[in-house]
Amino acid sequence: MATDTQSAAEASGPGMPQLDFSTWGNQIFWLVITLVVIYLILSRVALPRIASVLAERQGTITNDIAAAEDLKAKAQEAEAAYDKALIDARAEAGRIVAETKAGIQADLDKAIATADTKIAAKAAEGEKVIAEIRAGALDNVKVVAKDTAKEIVAAMGGKADAKSITAAVTARMKG
């Protein structure tokens, strides 16, 4: 067997099985079958499937990017709305503060005015009372002075009528 193959190889030249044309028909036959089968597998099953997967992925990516852009726009809108709301709220707060301040000020002014009038009334009343008391005190002084003067005059042994004593006391008190 060994010598057979060797001699066969020697007979067919430098011993390249590639150049043994008796096997070409066999190889070509099987090669054509193989290529047809691979072609059918690829063109009927594998390639359409992979193409659809790639197309689907491309679609998904495109959709996702569009959705992401939408969401980004929405987020920016929300941010703008938030900023606006913040500014509005600040303005509102300022307004409320000013209003409250003004209200308090008005109340305060009113209260102060009321207190002032009350104080004034009380002061006037007090002054009146003081005046009355002062007047009362003057009268009392007059009475006391007259009585005293009468007693002194009596003690001195003199006799004086009430009229002259009153006139004298009044003149002295003015003096």
Partner: peptide, 20 residues
């Protein structure tokens, strides 16, 4: 080896199909 004989070439071509 006739043109239709299953040979080692045919076997490995078939395995190539399986690989594909």
């Amino acid at each position: 080896i006739a043109w239709y004989t299953p040979t080692n070439a045919a076997l490995w071509m078939g395995l190539a199909i399986l690989a594909v």
